[in-house]
Design a protein around this nucleic acid. Structure first.
Lengths: 158, 158
DNA sequence: ATTGAACTGAGACTCAGTCTCAATGTAAGA
DNA sequence: TCTTACATTGAGACTGAGTCTCAGTTCAAT
């Protein structure tokens, strides 16, 4: 596992704050999420940590969400995904492929985040809404699916 | 119901394209969504159209999604919401109150949408991702909940 | 070593959402 | 108008992702 030790230290501290322990099961969940680098479904987690029972995995995810280590992501299909919280990784957006369901992380450009900050200010003044966080999901076709589609079309033509 | 007739005409056309009828049950769902002006949960729909059985409501929502009239929205709680598709209403973002769960629609400023368009172009060139649609959800506290919280704090202090 | 509290796995359970089926509505041709 | 073929409907059974329970285990602190 190529996860630097500060991650585990941070997670342990957050769990300790609510009198919880950083056990091997929870560590397994955190490592799997950290190594993936993109949101994982419960199915993904089950495959990457096969010794971890489903019920424990769910419970760990709940605990880790409650102490701010994990965030749940609603993808475009019927399954939630899970990722490390943004203050542990970094702020990012999601590209969601409507063909294969995959979720890809992207870091926004500074220019766009500046525009976003301005916009959130506008919202606060016009709607009295105090924004804490935002999430931007871009729906479309990933590079792999686009190529696959092109290949299929070429095959039909030939 | 203050829904202009073009909406119903449009929905009927879309259903007809897939050999389906615009029946009273489907019309009830569309009217409820149109009048609400913000995404509704199945519970909301049940309250606003009490004569409509749950199983029929779900089925209508599926049918209407398939012909592009309705869109499913993942809120911040455990329940999906439903709204009319953006090409029927207009492009908008969601303010999601993390305290009461309410979802509020907002129309983006032109400046922000310009920034968004540029950003999506960037993504397409840097990731090979062909974006079709995007959704921006802003999480925070709505005006009502903020006031309630202020009042509660004042009450404690006094 | 003892004790109290957190943790765990297995599997029962919940309930939002889907499916089935028998009955009904409806457009269109004879 | 009658018939026919097919879309629609309500009721309720069913599915399965996610939760809860419980009995046994591990841990940290004394």
């Amino acid at each position: 596992m190529m996860v630097d030790e500060t991650l585990h230290g941070l997670v342990e501290r957050r769990l300790r704050e609510v009198s919880q322990r950083y056990t091997s099961g929870r560590k397994a969940v955190v490592e799997v999420l950290a190594n993936a680098g993109h949101p994982l479904s419960i199915e993904d987690i089950g495959e990457l940590a096969p010794r971890l029972p489903r019920s424990s995995a769910y419970r760990h995810l709940v605990d880790l969400q409650q102490c701010g280590v994990v965030r749940r992501v609603a993808a475009n299909d019927d399954y939630y995904r899970f990722e490390l919280a943004e203050d542990i990784t970094e702020h990012h957006h999601h590209l969601m492929c409507t063909l294969c369901g995959k979720v890809i992380d992207v870091t926004p450009t500074p220019a766009f985040e500046r525009a976003m900050a301005n916009y959130l200010d506008d919202l606060s003044t016009s709607n009295g809404f105090a924004s804490i966080d935002h999430r931007l999901d871009v729906l479309g076709a990933c590079a792999t699916c686009r190529q696959r589609k092109l290949a299929a079309t070429a095959g039909c033509a030939g």
